[in-house]
Design a protein around this nucleic acid. Structure first.
Lengths: 108, 108
DNA sequence: TTAGAATATTCGATAATTCTAATAAACTGA
DNA sequence: TCAGTTTATTAGAATTATCGAATATTCTAA
């Protein structure tokens, strides 16, 4: 597979994570599967919109759906997704901290 | 800081990584800083466009620029960015592998 | 000080994302 | 089979991202 194509696929994974609602859903699924109804409760995302976000993550292979009766349970396809999110969260927090200290310094 | 706001900032980090050209640039900077001219050579991205991508990454705190004479050197702001990218790359590769095996299975 | 090299910014055109509202589909129990 | 519950899909409007072309800025060496 060409490098160009790999970068495109890689970017499409990142793109899938590049939305606050989807990140919240991923966070909800960190410890195991949940039905859509529960995700809707926790996140307060409208039904249609939540379903769209889940469909997108399904297509990109980020989550896996399992139907049980009338409910559909979603789970993360790979624990490394949580790890990657956590790392990026750390990058963010370190950035915020550095920015905070910078503001501290310039205030003196 | 509110959770909502953190998810937004987190998403904006992911958004910054969600582009094949920017991922390629980040890959180039994995082992240290490089001048824009060198990045342009390696990646074959047009001057204006490359500069736009670098500006975006600067704004989001992903890269840091250092001017030395007529050249501007860019570097990653945090080694965890490389780690996060590598993890997501692994997620992708494992997905591709699983998809490949799936195709293998269904062909039998 | 001025020409030339390296980099950045601005401006539109095009494409991609995101959302809500409406509707459809899948399933269960009566 | 029908009503009700849960989830998915579609359509269209609004916002946002991406790119190339043109232009501006920053710096150095002559």
């Amino acid at each position: 597979m060409s490098n160009r194509r790999l970068y495109e696929l890689h970017a499409s994974i990142c793109q899938t994570l590049a939305n606050p609602k989807r990140l919240e859903v991923i966070d909800c699924l960190r410890d195991g599967e949940l039905p859509v109804s529960r995700l809707a409760e926790i996140t307060n995302i409208g039904q249609a919109n939540l379903s769209q976000h889940l469909a997108l993550m399904r297509e990109k292979g980020i989550v896996i759906a399992r139907r049980e009766g009338v409910n559909v349970y979603y789970r993360l396809s790979n624990p490394k997704i949580t790890q990657a999110c956590d790392l990026m969260r750390q990058v963010l927090l370190e950035y915020l901290e550095a920015a905070g200290e910078l503001a501290e310094t310039s205030r003196q």
